[in-house]
């Protein structure tokens, strides 16, 4: 199964792993980390917004968070998706 990853587990960072899903299955997002309880909703929105901006419709996203804010999360999602698509330039 095709997959790609970006980020680290350093402080204020996260690891985003994207995995291909069947066409039409939509987007699924799984998150883990200490901040999820408080910021889970915002992180979910940031991830969905980034995927939408990148035109991604079907993908599975896994986020291991270590205090990444929206800005870092979005950057890591974009990097993972671009790697998944084989495009290593923004």
């Amino acid at each position: 199964m095709k997959t790609a990853q970006a980020g680290t587990l350093e402080s204020m960072d996260c690891i985003v792993t994207v995995t291909e899903t069947e066409k039409g299955r939509g987007i699924s997002i799984a998150m883990e980390g200490a901040s999820i309880v408080r910021f889970g909703e915002a992180m979910l929105k940031a991830t969905k917004d980034t995927l939408k901006d990148l035109g991604v419709r079907d993908i599975s996203v896994s986020i291991q968070d270590n205090g990444a804010g929206d800005l870092v999360l979005k950057a890591r999602v974009e990097a993972a998706v671009r790697r998944f698509a084989g495009v290593r330039t923004p």
């Binding site: 800005l71 979005k74 950057a75 890591r76 990097a79 671009r82 330039t89 923004p90």
Partner: peptide, 15 residues
């Protein structure tokens, strides 16, 4: 990591 760093730096600069 050049690609991921470039995206991160871009977004930090935009902020």
């Amino acid at each position: 990591e050049k690609d991921a760093a470039r995206i991160l730096v871009r977004d930090v600069l935009k902020r």
